[in-house]
Nucleic acid binder design. Structure first.
Length: 497
RNA sequence: GGUCGCGUGGCCGAGCGGUUAGGCAGUGGUCUGCAAAACCAUCUACAGCGGUUCGAAUCCGCUCGCGACCUCCA
């Protein structure tokens, strides 16, 4: 349990020993959604991944301040100064106030996060609530010589920054000269000094819907700026973890680093964590192309890509089966496999609760059980390797089933180890992996369990009388209701699948 | 075109120099009134071609295929 935690740091391109700046505390910033449309599944994977990271840090005993923003202004369609604000575009389309659009999709986002059992962050700041902080940051950047005004807009001078610091592009591996060449043709009409410069404040057209007073113009902040300003405000100018999807590395995170260094001379985060993409049909999910599925479609099964609906926890479990830094391909077969695996694991958890031992000494099984639990912890300490940790629990699941079925003797397990095993299942499945048991819902479940015991008794009577017709009718009818009866050596169990 | 990454058995997906990953599916068995569940056994692997090494899925080179970013995206 005392293994140190290693995390893959995109900056160093290596697994680094995680040592928080302040012992016992972790500051973590994750780029949240731009709330201009419904969340899509890829978003969900990213936030589930960081939820597991957040939960694991909490499990390790850290006091974590987890900041995840809501982008509600400044994120443009297309790049550069030619684009329109995504939220403004949507507001016009739906004939709503921009803030109505924001509220609508932010609510939807929160609901979806709840459905996936994603813990809420400590602070969820919004860009529009931090205009002053962003203006101040622009002023600092200008003061330090890395920003310049041009026709009411302010741009970040990437060339000057790179000359001084020599580091523009270090996160994403870009080379300054290449950036200048690549973009020169496309953006030669701009107000920018260099093609790779980016806006930190933009002058708004008179009819623009969301705009604020600033020293330079009535306008709005550049997209990248909010994260720099808000992470600094709530986590300080240098904090522990910054996360986001892989596709944010460039330009978003690169520019964030430049802004923070440009404003205060310090690198914002010490560990940069990036999640990988969710694929469908081997390609990145895309709304514009036809390879996309919404969470709702996945839940209900109303999509040509799936044969049936899958519950949110099955999907969360599915996500656990791959490492967060690997791409993950959604297929119907893989989801079916995840569904069965999820139920198998949950069933084992309940079977485990029924196990008891009088053996207060060490038993012959103790070593193996303890080793598997230790390995699961080590797996999580190795850059949050959930698929590997999960595999340990499937091995433990097999042992639990053998103990239950009598293939292994419960007397070979010491009570201390059994106790530890129960705690480990609890911690990993519910606290760390963040799974919920969808079949055993508290009060409802207790009522149903009482009724089910009666039915099981009646069926047992029928079977004792060799009245197979009645016994099978009970079993088959329940099966149609997705209730499975499991006849074992010590009577019959049931579960909802 | 530039940058980065990936190609593992029927499917998903770990491993990244020597030992069974794991889940799902398949096959044979145990159990069962018959099933299901569970258990036991078992079958399909490391894109191709070279090289390094006592030893390579794991390192290096080349070839082929795929993906991401560079352009809104988690």
């Amino acid at each position: 349990m005392n293994n140190p935690l290693y995390v893959y740091n995109s900056i160093s391109r290596d697994k680094d020993h995680f040592v928080p700046k302040e012992e016992g505390y972790v500051g973590m910033y994750v780029c949240g959604p731009t709330v201009y449309s419904d969340v899509h599944l890829g978003n969900c994977r990213t936030f589930v991944s960081f939820d597991i990271i957040y939960r694991y840090l909490l499990f390790l005993g850290y006091k974590v301040r987890y900041v995840r923003n809501i982008t509600d202004v400044g994120h443009l369609t297309g790049d550069s100064e030619d684009g329109e604000d995504k939220i403004v575009v949507k507001a016009k389309q739906e004939r709503l106030e921009p803030m109505e659009v924001v509220q609508k999709y932010m609510n939807g986002f929160h609901d979806m996060m709840d459905v996936f059992n994603v813990k809420r962050p400590s602070i969820e700041p919004r860009a529009t609530g931090h205009i002053l902080e962003q203006i101040e940051m622009v002023q600092d950047i200008i003061k330090n010589g890395y920003g310049y005004e041009s026709n009411g807009s302010v741009y970040f001078d990437t060339v000057k920054f790179n000359e001084d610091k020599g580091s523009y592009g270090k996160l994403s591996g870009r080379v300054m000269d290449e950036l200048l060449e690549e973009t020169r043709v496309l953006k030669n009409q701009s107000e920018k000094r260099n093609a790779s410069d980016f806006a930190i404040w933009m002058k708004a057209a008179p009819e623009h819907l969301m705009k604020w007073e600033s020293p330079w113009s009535v306008g709005f902040p550049g997209w990248h700026l909010e994260c720099s300003a808000m992470s600094t405000k709530y986590l300080g100018s240098n904090f522990d973890i910054h996360g986001g999807g892989n596709d944010l590395k460039f330009p978003h995170h690169e520019n964030e680093i430049a802004q923070n260094e440009g404003a205060c001379g310090c690198a914002p985060a010490r560990y940069w964590l990036h999640t990988n993409m969710l694929l469908m049909n081997g390609r990145k999910m895309s709304k514009s192309e036809d390879n996309s599925i919404t969470p709702e479609q996945l839940f209900t099964g109303s999509s040509k890509h799936v044969s049936k609906g899958y519950s949110p926890m099955v999907i969360r479990f599915f996500m656990l089966m791959a490492h967060y830094r690997s791409t993950m391909d959604i297929t119907d077969d893989a989801l079916q496999a995840a569904e069965k695996g999820y139920y198998k694991l949950m069933d084992a958890y309940y079977s485990l609760q029924e196990l008891n031992t009088n053996n207060t000494d060490e038993g012959s099984l103790d070593q193996e059980v303890n080793a598997l639990i230790d390995q699961a912890h080590a797996d999580m300490n190795d850059d949050f390797n959930t698929p590997k940790a999960l595999s340990r629990f499937f091995e433990l699941t097999s042992m639990v089933n053998k103990l239950k079925g009598g293939q292994l003797k419960i007397s070979d397990l010491g009570s201390a180890t059994l106790d530890r095993l129960k705690k480990a299942f609890q911690s990993f499945i519910f606290d760390i992996f963040g799974l919920k048991d969808e079949a055993h819902h508290d009060d409802d479940h207790n009522h149903l369990d009482g009724a089910m015991r009666l039915i099981i008794d009646l069926r047992a009577d029928a079977r004792a009388n060799k009245n197979w017709a009645v016994a099978d009718k009970i079993r088959d009818t329940l099966s149609e209701l997705e209730i499975t009866l499991k006849d074992g050596k010590d009577g019959t169990d049931w579960s909802i699948h």
